[in-house]
Design a protein around this nucleic acid. Structure first.
Length: 804
DNA sequence: AATGCGGTACTTTTT
DNA sequence: GTACCGCATT
């Protein structure tokens, strides 16, 4: 273990103060890159070594699994094996863990109870339950779409509402129905012995509220609570923290003076990095912290050790455009470094080729590719990038995205495990009862469901008891009974069988693997061989879990899988470039950062365009993205983007993101849109291949690109004017295309519109212009159509007729 | 009961 | 444009 000297070594005065705080509540306002994680980890070590607190009295909560891993890792280095006893995790994993032990002490106001072997329902499970409920209540799925209902229920829960409470507050027809759906949904979850993500937090909150004994136990155990990314806390999470940390009334009366004796709360956050308001995170919580905890101390960390001053100034110039923020200075401790490189691509493939070429160059210059990250706003954007990386044999890791555990075959196999773990899980039952086929059809299953519902049985028990009386054929009865018996048998032996063995047992006995092999052999399903690999991979994951975990049972395994989306951490360390959304990158740092898709409607996202608050959140997201970079920052956008045109027939031409225009030109190099000059003028002399043209307006002949874009890659069948794209093999001859006249369609004059104008569209009918995006000749109109909702229209292509 | 076709809805962001 | 869902067909 380290001595104090070492714990405070290399820290600045503010950081030292933060690490060596005494008892009581404290708030650390930590700007991006200010050494927040260092402070947090050293603080934990300080608590142990200097303040002599036991490691298991410490609870550290982070927002993402990655942040938790990082913290564990660093603490391991600081305090060695003792780190194992410190509870570090996300809110959700902490709550899941706690509920495994305590949930049987809980009874909801509605009278629902859960058992310790509850399962955690994901988005799909949730929606399917909601859908069932909506149908059962004879409500129209169109009016009460499962998607929207899930969202509403989630919002309510994050605000701390349970069905009974909401029922009292529902005012109009719709709210009343939502309350009914909410209530039935919650009842179904209880019947299935299942909780959703939001319940994990809320149930523990309610439990701590209603059960003083349990609350006392928690308070005695967790004397030191640390919360990272506090600006992203929502009401129910904050409530949870308060319940653990604040004295109960009885304690206040008993000994008011010693409430904070050998007890501490440390919250760390940065309002400028609040990017989860859609999950009901509320940065006003961090702003109100000092008034909620009157005795709290505050430490500000304003020295940035991560980024070059250029990158910092870029970040600052962007975030300055937000009105809802507290002025804060971030002092740079590094030199100016390199200017930010900006690139205009023809389309998303071109954009990807540019990135790939830069990676190659950086790698040739000795940059570790593991030090590079490619960030984007939406997961869908990874696809183009991946295609190009695969083609150039460039190893990469996608973090998050289409998750391994969401694949059909994985969900199937996990369905068996879940059913074995929790026989009440109706979702799991329905998923696996006929996979692989057992000759059971829709009618049989419908009868089974209603039989189970009437007799208040689990589907599994109903499968054993259902008979001819319910109109089920002899053959179906046998299939159901056999299935139920198999599950029961495996349940009985599950406690003393390793997960990997249960898994291979299922794969064999059910014939699931044989079915896949058969499909693969017959070539019926070209995905089948991949599926086999995935199933095998899951087996490996189970094996690994058995050797790593100190409690390798089904419970721990399934909990982990429900809460940790990344398949393994190991891939993070390999020397390959990483791809992730900006949200996932939060809290991480990389020497080299690429930010893709800086286009209006993509980033900032379309759905933020008509709300100032949402727009400010997008800007904070951009701020987070930029401040991930330590040395080099690349910003790219594409002139057109295929993914943009899915919903409509209109053109995919894009407008550069407003965030690019918020950056002072002096910090940028390459081609970028500037607020002053119309963007078209800048293009002609730009050659992305020549480094010297990173500076604007400098004419150079272009060398042959090394990126060999495969000939078969041509994607657009539409013969557009082909401007010299990054990925093209074509050397200088075609250079001129950049300055060729614009495509004809672009020059068709169109009628200028303003906000409030009524317009007519061939396909969508009458609508009203609610917003104008962009300027000069590059305008987009956000049009609200009565029937179709809001759409982003490009007047150059969409035929909009102004109505008077 | 299983398959295949056609229609619809879909893309924020994560635990 | 595609992926999924529901329906109708065999």
């Amino acid at each position: 273990m380290l001595a104090t000297g070492n714990l405070l070594k290399g820290l600045n005065d503010h950081q030292k103060t933060a690490v060596s705080l005494g008892w009581g509540p404290s708030l650390i306002v930590a700007g991006a890159g200010s050494g927040k994680t260092t402070v947090l980890t050293r603080r934990v070590a300080y608590l142990m070594t200097e303040l002599h607190q036991s490691p298991d009295s410490i609870l550290a909560v982070t927002f993402t699994n990655k942040a938790a891993e990082e913290m564990k890792h660093r603490l391991q280095k600081l305090v060695g094996g003792h780190a194992r006893h410190i509870l570090i995790g996300t809110f959700h994993s902490f709550c899941a863990r706690a509920l495994r032990e305590e949930i049987e002490n809980y009874k909801s106001p509605e009278g629902y109870t859960w058992k310790h072997n509850f399962v955690i329902y994901d988005e799909t499970d949730k929606q399917s339950v909601v859908k069932n409920v909506v149908n059962r209540l004879n409500l129209d799925e169109k009016v009460f779409s499962p998607r929207e209902m899930c969202h509403r229920i989630s919002s309510l829960k994050n605000d701390g509402y349970m069905p009974a409470r909401y029922a009292n507050e529902a005012r109009n027809y719709k709210e009343t129905r939502v309350a009914e759906i909410f209530s039935a949904y919650q009842s179904d979850l209880a019947k299935n012995n299942a909780l959703d993500f939001d319940d994990l937090i809320l149930t523990l909150v309610e439990l701590l509220r209603q059960n003083l004994a349990v609350r006392r136990r928690f308070r005695e155990r967790f004397q030191h609570v640390l919360v990272d990314e506090f600006q992203d806390t929502n009401q129910s999470q904050y409530e949870l923290i308060r319940l653990i940390v604040e004295a109960s009334d009885e304690e206040k009366q008993a000994n008011p003076a010693s409430i904070w004796h050998e007890r501490s709360l440390l919250v760390v956050g940065d309002v400028d990095q609040s990017i989860y308001s859609w999950r009901k995170a509320d940065f006003r919580i961090i702003l109100g912290f000092q008034s909620d905890f009157k005795e709290s101390k505050i430490v500000k960390l304003e020295d940035n050790y991560r980024s070059t001053s250029t990158i910092l100034e870029v970040a600052n110039s962007i975030i300055q455009n937000n009105t809802e923020r507290i002025e804060k200075v971030l002092r740079s401790s590094r030199g100016a470094g390199t200017k930010v490189k900006c690139f205009e691509a023809q389309d998303e493939i071109d954009e990807a080729y540019f990135v790939q070429e830069e990676l190659k160059r950086l790698s040739a210059r000795g940059r570790q590719l593991s030090n590079c990250v490619i960030l984007y706003r939406t997961n869908a954007q990874s696809r183009a990038m991946e295609e190009v990386l695969v083609r150039s044999h460039q190893p990469y890791t996608v973090v998050g995205g289409t998750r391994f555990y969401e694949r059909q075959e994985i969900k199937d196999v996990l369905g068996y495990l879940k059913l074995i773990f929790n026989g009440a899980d109706g979702q799991a039952f329905m998923r696996v009862i006929n996979t692989p086929r057992r000759g059971l059809g829709k009618t049989t299953l419908e009868r089974l469901v209603s039989f189970a519902f009437d007799r208040d049985l689990t589907l599994l028990d109903a499968a054993k008891e259902i008979g001819a009386k319910q109109g089920v054929s002899e053959k179906s009865q046998k299939a159901l009974r056999d299935f139920a018996n198999m599950v029961k048998r495996r349940q009985a032996e599950s406690a003393q069988t390793p997960i990997s063995e249960i898994l291979s047992g299922i794969l064999k006995e059910t014939g699931y693997l044989d079915k896949l092999k058969e499909d693969a052999a017959q070539g019926l399903d070209e995905l089948a061989s991949g599926r086999i690999e995935n199933v095998m991979e899951l087996h490996n994951v189970a094996k690994e879990f058995e050797s790593m975990s100190d409690k390798p049972d089904l419970e721990a395994f399934l909990t982990r899988i429900a809460l940790v989306s990344d398949i393994d951490q190991a891939k993070m360390d390999e020397d390959c470039v990483k791809l992730m959304t900006i949200h996932s990158a939060k809290g991480l740092e990389f020497p080299v950062v690429f930010i893709l898709g800086l286009e209006e409607g993509l980033f900032p996202h379309m759905r933020s365009l008509d709300s100032p608050n949402a727009m400010e959140e997008e800007r904070r997201l951009m701020y987070v993205a930029v401040t991930r970079a330590a040395d080099l920052l690349y910003l790219t956008y594409a002139r057109k983007r295929a993914a943009f045109g899915w919903a409509t027939g209109f053109s995919n031409f894009t407008i550069p993101s407003r965030f690019l225009k918020e950056i002072s030109p002096q910090h940028m190099t390459g081609f970028y849109p500037s607020p002053e000059t119309p963007s078209n003028d800048q293009k002609e002399d730009y050659d992305p291949w020549d480094e010297s043209t990173w500076a604007q307006k400098k004419k150079q002949p272009s060398p042959t690109p090394s990126a060999q874009r495969p000939a078969d890659y041509a994607r657009s069948s539409k013969p557009q004017v082909k401007p010299r794209a990054f990925r093209q093999q074509t050397p200088p001859q075609q250079t001129s295309s950049r300055i060729e006249p614009k495509p004809k369609e672009e020059s068709i004059p169109f009628e200028k519109l303003s906000v409030g104008d009524k317009v007519q569209h061939v396909k969508f009918g009458i609508g009203e212009v609610t917003q104008i995006i962009g300027d000069k000749d590059k305008e987009l109109y956000n049009v609200d159509f009565k029937t179709e909702g809001k759409r982003l229209m490009d007047p150059r292509f969409a035929k909009l007729v102004k109505l008077t």
